[in-house]
């Protein structure tokens, strides 16, 4: 096989990987959006669909892992290619976790149907919507590699984490005064935690894309400013 042919195979494999990661991201975006919509509207049918679709996320997760493994073994990538494949593995892992959190949210919706006003009282619907729009930026970043989006993600994830913390404190206070809400409030706290985790994994993805584009490792940094 000539060098040119080998290179063509390599480039095709990279293209395939890129398409799969983008597909994974779209799929997870749909899962997050639907889980939050189901939460905010108490749509049990939609929640069930999210739970069922997790299977598709898991299958794609394995396909991406295998493709990366093959590229490492057969093509010995270097430089940007190497960083891209390392990051694709990490991003894939983070997306799969975000998908799992969407499923976990969907599984906890039913108990809320009788307590929608309780949930709204703590602004959980708005908080959840900000997580959806944060993830839309993640999806765009994966597709375009425009680093300005990474800074938006870092910034918005911090706001979400802060709001999650504030909402949790308010709920704890409510629980101290009204013992009958403890069960639903505990569930709500778990959902808030899941939203916070989605924000956290979103920053991981942004860090991985910065590593691809600039070769800089920006994880584990205190982040109040732009990277």
């Amino acid at each position: 096989m000539s060098e040119m042919e080998k290179l063509r195979i390599f480039d095709n494999e990279l293209k395939k990987l890129n398409e799969r990661v983008i597909n994974m991201s779209h799929l997870v975006e749909e899962q997050v959006s639907n889980a939050i919509l189901a939460l905010n509207t108490c749509d049990m049918k939609l929640a069930k669909q999210v739970i069922e679709n997790d299977n598709m996320v898991d299958k794609l997760d394995i396909k991406i892992d295998k493709l990366c493994q093959n590229i490492f073994a057969l093509q010995q990538p270097v430089a940007t290619d190497l960083r891209y494949i390392i990051s694709s593995l990490k991003i894939n892992n983070d997306l799969e976790r975000i998908g799992d959190h969407a499923v976990n949210i969907a599984k906890r919706i039913e108990p809320f149907c009788n307590y929608m006003s309780f949930s709204k009282k703590f602004g959980i619907d708005e908080l959840a919507n900000t997580a959806v729009s944060l993830y839309k930026d993640v999806d765009q970043l994966i597709k375009t590699h425009q680093l300005v989006l990474a800074n938006d993600i870092f910034h918005n994830a911090l706001i979400i984490k802060d709001n999650c913390h504030k909402a949790s404190e308010k709920i704890i206070e409510e629980m101290m005064h009204q013992s009958e809400v403890i069960v639903v409030a505990t569930n709500l706290m778990i959902i808030i935690n899941l939203i916070e985790r989605i924000a956290s994994y979103s920053t991981n993805v942004a860090e991985a894309i910065i590593f691809v584009v600039e070769g800089k490792i920006v994880k584990h940094q205190k982040r109040n400013e732009e990277h």
């Binding site: 080998k6 430089a79 070769g215």
Partner: peptide, 17 residues
């Protein structure tokens, strides 16, 4: 050089492009 070369020519060479 093999993870993040400074020059595009270097990157193109080591990655076979």
């Amino acid at each position: 050089i093999y993870t993040n070369p400074d020059k595009k020519q270097t990157e193109d060479y080591i990655s076979g492009r």
